[in-house]
């Protein structure tokens, strides 16, 4: 969604400067950066794959594995920290049985911690499937997750239905 994004269809216009916007575009489309996508990008830009991978791994935004159906971003900014966002994160860890990569045991949820979403005045904040929720407590978080569980059991969503909403925000 960057202004006038170059696409892979116009290789003549590609330059090194477009590497990061292109990576962002690929991730917005696929939800993550696959090895194939990075190799193709490197060829299109006429740079070594290692240098594409080097750039991609430098930035926190890029992911190398697909995300779960629901994405929870826990803000770990200063204001959120002072208002106990760590407790929220630990609660999610326990409730969703998070694995070290941040995905829940059943693979439905991905929990990421982000530096600061810039909504400090209503700390602590999380972003759930692209929507912000402020002034959170463990109880409110539970209510949110209960709502999702209920919604999913009543009307199971196809996994790729959630993907574009999240991706368009990242």
């Amino acid at each position: 969604m960057s202004s006038a994004p170059a696409t892979l269809a116009q290789p003549a216009e590609l330059s090194r400067e477009q590497l990061i916007p292109l990576l962002q575009e690929v991730q917005a489309k696929d939800g993550y950066l696959s090895q194939t996508a990075m190799t193709e990008l490197a060829q299109a830009l006429d740079t070594p794959v290692a240098s594409v991978y080097g750039v991609a791994t430098f930035y926190n935004q890029f992911r190398f594995a697909p995300l779960g159906e629901h994405v929870i971003e826990v803000c770990r900014g200063t204001a959120c920290h002072v208002k106990q966002s760590l407790t929220l994160y630990q609660h999610l860890e326990r409730r969703l049985k998070l694995r070290p990569d941040g995905n829940s045991a059943d693979g439905r949820f991905s929990v990421l911690s982000v530096a600061c979403v810039g909504a400090c005045s209503i700390a602590p904040v999380i972003k759930l499937d692209g929507e912000f929720y402020g002034h959170l407590t463990v109880e409110k978080l539970d209510a949110l997750l209960d709502g999702i569980d209920k919604h999913d059991t009543e009307s199971p969503t196809e996994p790729n239905q959630e993907q574009p909403t999240e991706a368009s925000h990242s």
Binding site: S3, E17, I20, P21, Q24, F58, N60, Q61
Partner: peptide
């Protein structure tokens, strides 16, 4: 004016790191 989206690196607030990032490298 062109908008460049940062990719989540705090160090890219430093001016020479921004330059590296806009040029398409590690910030």
């Amino acid at each position: 004016i062109v908008i460049k989206q940062g990719a989540g690196a705090f160090v890219c607030g430093e001016e020479t790191a921004i330059l590296a990032s806009i040029e398409g490298g590690r910030g």
